[in-house]
């Protein structure tokens, strides 16, 4: 036999665990119009609560989580054909990494995707035209052991400390005669040699730089080569 609730007990349950009504509460609501109205009110309130708690989730969250898992735990090694040889190379790579505390080689495809997603995530960076702060750029570069040792190939229009696959880095954009060029330094991403960045609207490359790598990206169809080379020469290690 179902336990009988008083109105006070029913109201308490409605305010405590409204989405898991007990048998006793259900039975009470069937026989008590006042509490049934309160239950309707409680349902509406719960609906508000859910809407309020459900703050927007950033686009691509799941993809970024999977990317982080992949880049932290998968290692690239040459295709030697023999599993044994591959195992030895991997063991050596892990051993060297362990010994010197360096990060493993990042998954190239994953880094490229991260760069493209990041630049798409901050579209204002590639359309900015106002002067950004040179002092801020110098300060940020200093935080990562870098400094400016030459002129930029155009006007600095955007500068920000930004997330990278493993930490943070420096993202700045220079507006050159041939369009905006993004410089996105990822201090913890080690890659094998230069690699292309290619998206429907963006083009560029990623290369090893300082302790990690840098992505140099422009809008597709714009010639950024000279500006990109000047940027790479202008940013040097502050240690010498």
């Amino acid at each position: 036999m179902t336990e009988q609730l008083t109105c006070l007990e029913a109201r308490r349950e409605l305010q405590t665990e409204p989405e898991r009504p007990s048998e006793a509460l259900r039975a009470h609501l069937e026989s008590c119009p006042a509490c049934a109205r309160a239950a309707e009110n409680a349902r509406e309130f719960e609906s508000w609560l859910h809407r309020a708690f459900n703050v927007p989730v950033p686009d691509g969250l799941a993809e970024r989580l999977l990317l982080a898992q992949t880049t932290r735990t998968r290692y690239r090694f040459p295709r030697l054909g023999l599993a044994l040889a591959a195992g030895i190379v991997l063991a050596l790579a892990v051993g060297v990494t362990w010994q010197f505390g360096a990060r493993p080689i990042s998954d190239a495809g994953a880094v490229e995707k991260y760069v493209v997603d990041h630049i798409h995530h901050e579209p204002q960076a590639m359309t900015a035209t106002g002067q950004a702060s040179m002092d801020e750029l110098k300060s940020l570069l200093g935080d990562y052991g870098l400094k400016l040792a030459g002129d930029l190939p155009g006007k600095l229009v955007y500068v920000k400390r930004c997330p990278t696959p493993h930490g943070t880095g420096v993202h700045f954009v220079v507006l050159t005669d041939s369009g905006p060029v993004a410089f996105y330094y990822m201090p913890n991403e080690r890659i094998h040699g230069p690699m292309k960045v290619s998206a429907e609207d963006l083009a560029g490359y990623i290369e090893s730089f300082h302790s990690g790598s840098v992505a140099l990206v422009s809008r597709r169809g714009e010639d950024m080569d000279a500006a990109a080379r000047q940027l790479v020469r202008a940013v040097v290690s502050s240690g010498g």
Binding site: N54, V55, V57, P58, L61, A62, L65, L66
Partner: peptide
């Protein structure tokens, strides 16, 4: 792991925000 990420990452993120 992928199934966990796809199923629960949104709610976990929201809990993290709070």
């Amino acid at each position: 792991f992928e199934a966990l990420v796809r199923s629960y990452s949104s709610d976990l993120y929201r809990m993290a925000v709070w």
